[in-house]
Design a protein around this nucleic acid. Structure first.
Lengths: 136, 136
DNA sequence: TTCTGCTTGCAAATGATTTGCATTTAGTAT
DNA sequence: ATACTAAATGCAAATCATTTGCAAGCAGAA
């Protein structure tokens, strides 16, 4: 974890370690508020959490996830995957699927050769929305 | 347009007509702010725009789109499609692809039979992020 | 045309996130 | 180990998007 920070040129601070630790423990996407709760024992200021999330995102350590919530969610950028979100209770499950990745890649290669507007695709997001067993 | 509103049990009001008109003209996703700009000649209050977007979404006429922006975007719900977003200038292009839809459907059918947590998937979003020709 | 409830506008509240500034601290050079 | 500097933090206040309360207005049914 320290190495990850060093590689990206970040100073190693208690706040950053605590926040990264929270993400490695939790795996699922978290908002600034979620992170604050997870690390509340560390007495790290809310503003620091926002700033840290933002800089870790810029550094490519975290990435932003869009889950149709009213606040911004982040997760570790280390491994690409997608989510299923319960639109009622907000439970989140991760999933990976090679076929989908292939299909998406095929599409965007197709798009950048045909589109008059776009020339390069760098990433994509795919989220499924539904109801979990509990909420059905 | 009036019929759409009537079908869903909405009263026909200048604000709703103006907002729906803006969406049918523009095609691309818009935030509340975007909508306000488009219909500024109609002197419709910002709060009304927010309320209208929200109720049209509940009525299934609009749907929310997740574009990693800091405000919420909506578009007409009438036809399912996906987007390519320029992460620099925010230009948006729509696309449809039958293969992708099939692959996604396959995946979520697979998921709901296997997942211990999820039982039904109702919708999905797929967005591509990259750079447009101008921004490259 | 009258009535009733849904809609709207305005002002103010709220919630999430950002900024200014003074203080502290990590990493580096001494 | 010590001193130094830029980056990181905490606190208060500001900002931005969105929501709410309430009184007035308007659409659609009778």
């Amino acid at each position: 974890m320290r190495n990850i920070l060093k590689e990206k040129g970040f100073k190693i601070t208690p706040a950053r370690l605590a926040i990264l630790q929270a993400f490695t423990k939790n795996k699922l996407p978290m908002s600034a508020e979620d992170v604050c709760k997870k690390i509340k024992s560390k007495k790290i200021n809310e503003v620091t959490v926002y700033r840290t999330l933002s800089s870790l995102e810029k550094g490519g350590i975290l990435k932003r996830v869009d889950l149709r919530k009213d606040s911004v969610y982040f997760e570790l950028a280390d491994q690409h995957h997608h989510h299923i979100v319960c639109t009622n209770c907000n439970m989140i499950e991760d999933f990976k699927n090679l076929e989908i990745e292939k299909a998406i890649e095929k599409v965007w290669k197709n798009i950048i050769t045909k589109s008059s507007k776009f020339k390069s695709i760098r990433e994509h997001s795919l989220e499924l929305f539904g109801l979990c067993r509990m909420c059905m």
